[in-house]
């Protein structure tokens, strides 16, 4: 069967333009607990009100990730997932009706080995709308940015509380939106967000032509509410990955998968209470 996935243009931009509240941007690891479950989870997330999906490519050495996403990555790798399967999985999501933008989250080495241009070609075909590479700072991103423009698939840049004078340089070439890292450290839930986060977000906003989203450490509706006035998007990763892990058995059994998906939707709806 030859599937035709509709050509997509500037989906991320459109999404931010049409927002009334900050966009909810969940992160999931492709292939955890299984490839099949990941497609269903993506669709459930859209139904529960996700605005953009970050799809994580599992990696053997995820330097920017804490134990939760490291664990998901290791489980997905045991399922034989690679960067190509992840992109094709986005295509399967599209075939099954997913409409929200999908951003591929991947470390740089798998991109290099697949071939940067080959990856952009495949992402274009499979309906991926953006790419984020946490270990590719602006100084090293020339080749990827050139291709991202050629294929109209924005490279999402990160800024951190330590970026200081780098914020302007990063903002100048930013595409899609800027991903603001809320606090020092790797991904993972935090009881408390760092004190300066609001001033940091204001500074990024003042320098940026594109919308800004914030992530790292967001796990409760209260934190969503705290950050909502300062960002155009809120990214939740580890807390969701933990919920998926907790429902892993339900999700992998055909009789109970629905129940697992309901639990995930409930988690998301609860989080979204914070931004209504």
């Amino acid at each position: 069967m030859i599937s035709v996935i509709a050509v997509r243009e500037q989906e991320i931009e459109k999404k931010f333009q049409s927002r009334t509240t900050p966009l909810f941007i969940p992160f999931i690891t492709a292939g955890d607990p299984s490839l099949e479950a990941t497609v269903k989870i993506a669709l459930a997330l859209e139904q529960a009100g996700a605005d953009i999906l970050e799809l994580g490519v599992p990696y053997s050495d995820p330097l920017a990730d804490g134990p939760t996403i490291q664990g998901a990555s290791a489980r997905a790798l045991r399922n034989g997932v690679n960067i190509e399967t992840c992109v094709r999985l986005a295509g399967q999501m599209r075939e099954q009706g997913l409409t929200i933008p999908v951003i591929l989250f991947t470390y740089y080495n798998p991109v290099l080995q697949y071939g940067i241009e080959s990856l952009f070609q495949l992402m274009r075909k499979q309906g991926v709308d953006g790419i984020l590479i946490p270990d590719l700072p602006v100084e090293e991103s020339g080749e990827v940015i050139a291709l991202s423009k050629q294929y109209s698939i924005p490279l999402i840049s990160l800024v951190a509380p330590t970026s200081k004078q780098r914020i302007r340089k990063i903002a100048e070439q930013a595409e899609g939106f800027i991903y603001c890292v809320s606090s020092l450290g790797v991904t993972g839930t935090r009881n408390q967000l760092s004190d300066g986060v609001e001033d940091f977000l204001k500074e990024v906003r003042a320098n940026s032509k594109v919308p800004i989203a914030v992530g790292f450490g967001i796990s409760t509706p209260e934190q969503m509410q705290q950050l909502a006035p300062f960002a155009d998007g809120l990214i939740v990763g580890s807390a969701l990955v933990k919920t998926i892990e907790a429902n892993s058995e339900l999700l992998q059994n055909a009789d109970t998968a629905e129940k697992g998906l309901e639990n995930i939707k409930r988690f998301v709806q609860n989080l979204k209470c914070g931004v209504r």
Binding site: P134, P137, E139, T162, S163, R166
Partner: peptide, 12 residues
């Protein structure tokens, strides 16, 4: 060579 690290470390 180069510097392929998370943005958080670039300033350091």
């Amino acid at each position: 060579g180069g510097k392929y690290v998370p943005e958080t470390l670039m300033n350091a």
